[in-house]
Design a protein around this nucleic acid. Structure first.
Lengths: 205, 205
DNA sequence: TATTACATTGTGGACATCCACAACGCCGGA
DNA sequence: TCCGGCGTTGTGGATGTCCACAATGTAATA
């Protein structure tokens, strides 16, 4: 079973062990990985928690690992750790969406606090993603025509107007409308709008 | 008239002049301020553009200036510049919502690029804010009762159900509903939902 | 005190939506 | 070739919404 945990990715065994021990004493579940490659190879979509990622590692660097993670569509909060970081690197990492960026040596309690905040954020993300996926799944059930009708419903148009625009009878629109409601599991146009707005809108940071 | 411009805030006159010249040659409108205090004293809500803020200044620091700006509800993109920055400072600034954080000496073209991106972002924000304010203004016209009814409409409930929940007649609900539509300038419950969702939802970065 | 804003309710009709029952043509897969 | 999904359309009725016309009571304000 995959419960939320902090994934520690560092090629230095001493640090992995130290962090593992640190998190253990603070009751934070964690897993350790000796390289970016091993972590990415094991990673499953659906893993929750966060990643504590060392930047300078043999093989793939932490920064590259982060890019791959995001390319795979994984939105896990990532906390970078580095002993040789500079301001431009930190700025670039955060602007790309890293959760935090700290330098060694760091204060243990600070790291734990950051990780716990990251875990909280991820728990929220999980709820949002679950909702999103549910809605997307329902949307996927709609035929092209039904989606077309749905858009016009969401624009607040009357069946009569929709019928005119699509050059079909009002009765047909009603049929599609009914199907849309059924597949989307809503009982009114307003509920539909609320539901669809859950997965749209939230764009453009 | 206040057109979008880059506000350069630096206590070093040589730098102000240099940046002003730089922006002028790149056709980027700008204004200069010799201190955080002078900028904040002149600042009007509604000013658009971005701020290029030196961190180390006599009197109020750039970081403090940023905090005051945000406390006032101003969302202008802020680009920090510093000659003595470190990673934690940069990280803290970005996590608080700074647009960018660069070190001196910096490449002129880089700064111009950053500022131009900031100006773009701000132009988008302006549109979003304008919409938001329009909707908020309409919402403010609603009486308490009307808002109450509106919430139930947005929940997708029938007038009959709303009447039961508020212990009033269906006719009264219809009257409120009508008033809500009129004041919100929409013609259907779906339009209302779309409009209100523009100002809700977009929370929780 | 007179005015105004607000919440409340009723009647009646026009219009829109929801729904059950019924049917036809097209197209792709078994 | 037959079946099933899909888009299409119709009828008719129950239910919900929109709106004009009309009215009453309360509270705050000018």
């Amino acid at each position: 079973m995959t419960q939320p945990c902090a994934h520690i990715i560092d090629d230095d065994e001493a640090i992995r062990d130290a962090l593992q021990w640190l998190f253990k004493t603070r009751d934070v579940a964690c897993a350790t990985w000796p390289s970016a490659e091993s972590f990415l190879a094991a990673l499953q979509p659906g893993w929750r928690g966060c990643a504590v990622l060392d930047i300078r590692m043999d093989g793939m660097s932490g920064l590259e690992c982060f890019d791959v993670l995001r390319q795979r569509g994984n939105q896990l909060p990532v906390i970078f750790i580095t002993g040789h970081g500079d301001v431009p690197m930190a700025v670039a990492a955060l602007k790309k969406g890293a959760f935090d960026f700290i330098e060694k040596p760091f204060n243990d309690s600070d790291l734990v606090d950051i990780v716990m905040r990251a875990l909280e954020i991820d728990a929220n993300n999980q709820r949002a993603e679950a909702t999103r996926e549910t809605v997307e799944a329902r949307l996927a059930l709609l035929t092209a025509r039904e989606q077309e009708v749905m858009e016009l419903i969401l624009a607040g148009k009357f069946n009569k107007v929709i019928a005119d625009e699509l050059c079909i009878s009002m009765r047909t629109v009603e049929a599609h409308r009914s199907k849309v409601f059924e597949k989307m599991e809503v009982r009114s146009a307003v509920e539909l709008a609320q539901l669809v707005n859950l997965v749209r809108n939230r764009g453009g940071h």
